[in-house]
């Protein structure tokens, strides 16, 4: 069981992911925007962060950058992007920024948990 933070501004998508993670036996926490997400990263120290990119207030790029700057504990925290920006250059940009994985929307739900768990084992 792992504590997984899901940051996405679409409530319906957040609900789906939370349900799926709970089914898989994890403990999901959620945030509706980047600012709240970053605060939860610092206070809850999740085992993995699932983060959307296009969000109001703080976008996914800024969340990752600021998270890595929080301290040594956060430098290796698994971070997975979950975005509708699916063009190859956007995926590359996300990975170059230091994301461990980049899942594009529509999400292949069958693979979501597998990807997360593979990342958690490392």
């Amino acid at each position: 069981m792992a504590r997984i933070l899901c940051i996405d501004d679409e409530a319906a998508i957040r609900r789906l992911i939370v349900e799926e993670l709970r089914d898989a036996g994890h403990e999901p926490i959620e945030a509706a925007d980047g600012e709240t997400g970053l605060a939860l990263i610092a206070s809850q120290r999740p085992d993995l962060v699932l983060c959307d990119i296009s969000m109001p207030k703080l976008d996914g790029y800024q969340v990752l950058e600021r998270m890595r700057a929080l301290g040594p504990d956060f430098r290796l925290m698994p971070f997975v992007y979950l975005s509708a920006m699916a063009e190859p250059r956007q995926v590359t940009a996300g990975k170059r920024l230091g994301a461990d994985d980049y899942i594009t929307k529509p999400i292949a739900f069958e693979e979501l948990v597998a990807t997360i768990e593979r990342r958690l084992r490392r």
Binding site: E10, E87, I107
Partner: peptide, 24 residues
């Protein structure tokens, strides 16, 4: 093209996700 790709993906994620969850 970029707008269409991006703006369609979010509702598709929701539709597909709900269908997947209901099937499960």
């Amino acid at each position: 093209v970029s707008m269409v790709s991006h703006e369609f993906r979010t509702p598709l994620t929701i539709i597909d996700g709900e269908a997947y969850r209901m099937g499960k």
